[in-house]
Amino acid sequence: MTEEAEHKLIDRLQDPKEQKAAFSDLVKAFSEQLYWQIRKMVLSHDDANDVLQNTFIKIWTNLDSFRGDAKLVTWLYRIAINESITFINKQKQSQNIAIDDDDSFLLSKLEGDSYFDGDEAQLKLQKAILTLPEKQRIVFNMKYFDDMKYEDMSKILDTSVGALKASYHHAVKKIEEFLSLPN
């Protein structure tokens, strides 16, 4: 979305008469993007669907608090990422799993997802990604799969470009080590 289009959409979102119609346009413009960000975090399609709904409901109820000091897409991504983390933590809590125990919990999600279409190599890569700490995993997915610019990532994750570059570099190294292990 161009900057001009984004400004027009923001204006319409803040006009009570046009808000709902503008929100529908917002959903159409961003649902797919946000879905994939969420899916890479929660792994299962059913969970990603739930989180995406939660995300848009949160966006809807907090529209008035969006001040335009950040780009709209940055704000949307932040909500999506926070909703994903909250969702995962709630599920772990309900299953008495430690919050920092990502490997086995998310691995079971990955292996249990009926909408995973990858081959053996892709499955191994996803398993490798799961060995990364949560934030590093997010950074890796954003850079490797989405080719997101570090500057944009920095605004979404509120982390310096330098730190993100270092994080990505370490992530790649760790993943390549994992991939080089025999099956």
Binding site: V27, K40, I57
Partner: peptide, 27 residues
């Protein structure tokens, strides 16, 4: 390795975009 291994049900996004509008809480 950059191929997306995840898929979605057919017409998922079209359906989602419509259904979410009915789920929005009244303001």
């Amino acid at each position: 390795d950059k191929r997306n291994p995840f898929r979605v049900p057919e017409n998922y996004f079209e359906n989602f975009n419509l259904e979410i509008m009915d789920k929005l809480p009244e303001k």
